[in-house]
Write a protein that binds this DNA or RNA. Structure first.
Lengths: 233, 233
DNA sequence: TAATCGAAATTGGTTAACCAGTATGGGTTA
DNA sequence: TAACCCATACTGGTTAACCAATTTCGATTA
């Protein structure tokens, strides 16, 4: 297991070096945006690594929108300008692994917004799905069971109802880590969960009534314990 | 090019079907969280697809934290519970491609927060990097040149100074698409850019002075045109 | 009988050969 | 001379064989 972690960071080091190499190559060759990068085979030979390594590095830069691979044609520099490209690569290289505090902080920010948007935009179908999630949550809590999962799913249903696919995606990407941490530290005890029912119900009602300000307020109250937990970590 | 798009969506369809298949398998076999999935080879045989397809589907579920592959050992169901797993897979399958409006909406939300956090947490090194980005922006605008890239880099520098790696990552991931759309539609005309200098300078000063409320206010004003553009799209 | 050791099968990851589509350039023709 | 075409080499993507680490399970031994 230790070894696995070692090789993983080792891999990332190689990948970062390759990203630097690709960046320098673009600068050195004065590749304008839209121009073609050398082929994967040439790059792998130039940097003396396997083609898989090169493809992995390209994929990462593709994820951040800096490169674009087109089958049977080549890999192209995105049309965002050389300055933005250099700056963003610099940022990507220095990007830290997200700590839990930053995850919770971001989650709260997103949720205060999504609940507001959901109050404004929710469809009847959204309401139905919210109710389903809420009922499942209430059922679990009423039976004295752990309901971390149902809790999070209700919040995800709100994100979906917000009609903002980007925030929805972001919420999805941070939820699993939050669930893991919560279940590990037993953040949600019974008393908290009991109060959670009222909170969720209030939020749900505010969304039904299309009262964005109220919904946001209720969500804020709901997060009060989470706030304190987060900053005491 | 058309064909490329076709095959891409075709691939995504296959991938979605595989994700459904994996989900059903987990449910059918009553795999508890932490348990091992059948091997990639068995899955590829069962679903009658190539092993690459299976790995791609697993990778996607791994991205969202639902599975975890461990070399020479197997692929494991994340320890988040079967209910959360089912709910999240449902959401992932229905996830729309992000539209531009949702991107801008999210960007504004993130920036109003990062600028506030940056005012509270910025280090001296952050200040130096912000100044560098600001000077580059002012220089370009003063010479009457397009400065979309320098503009965005200043905003990314703020995200970095916020000390929140999750928001920083999110900002990075939505920036390229925003740059592309902006340069395509020539959103930033000369007059706007000229005013942008004052805005940026005011934001920068507020961050230096550690005045989070003022910084947020200035950012809000800076986004006013963007708001109108976004909602008129 | 129970603990231990090790060989063989199984695992995800890696690699090199292969594929189909694309771009290129020299030769041909109008 | 210029436009066109087809053969060839090159592209990213895919696949199947390979690898090293791990797990498993049964034979062996104390």
């Amino acid at each position: 297991m230790n070894l696995e972690l070692l090789t993983k960071t080792e891999n990332q080091k190689v990948q970062n070096l390759l990203i630097i190499g690709i960046r320098d190559l673009i600068n050195y060759k004065n590749l304008e945006p839209g121009e073609k990068l050398p082929s994967e085979r040439m790059l792998s030979e130039k940097f003396n690594v396997t083609r898989s390594n090169i493809r992995e590095a390209i994929r990462k830069l593709e994820f951040y929108g800096l490169l674009k691979s087109i089958p049977q044609s080549g890999t192209f520099v995105a049309n965002i300008g050389i300055i933005a490209l250099n700056g963003m690569i610099e940022d990507i290289l220095r990007l830290d692994e997200p700590d839990f505090k930053s995850l919770v902080e971001t989650r709260i920010l997103l949720e205060l917004k999504t609940v507001r948007l959901a109050s404004l935009r929710r469809t009847d179908e959204d309401i139905a799905q919210l109710k389903e999630a809420l009922d499942a949550y209430i059922d679990k809590v009423s039976n004295g069971k752990d309901a971390v999962q149902e809790d999070l799913l209700f919040h995800l249903a709100i994100a979906k109802a917000s009609g903002n696919s980007t925030m929805n995606k972001f919420m999805l990407s941070i939820t699993p880590e939050i669930i893991l941490k919560f279940e590990k530290h037993h953040v949600c005890d019974d008393d908290l969960a009991q109060r959670g029912i009222d909170d969720h119900q209030a939020i749900f009602n505010a969304i039904i009534d299309k009262k964005p300000q109220l919904a946001k307020q209720k969500m804020k109250e709901h997060f009060k314990e989470l706030y304190s937990y987060c900053y005491n970590l």
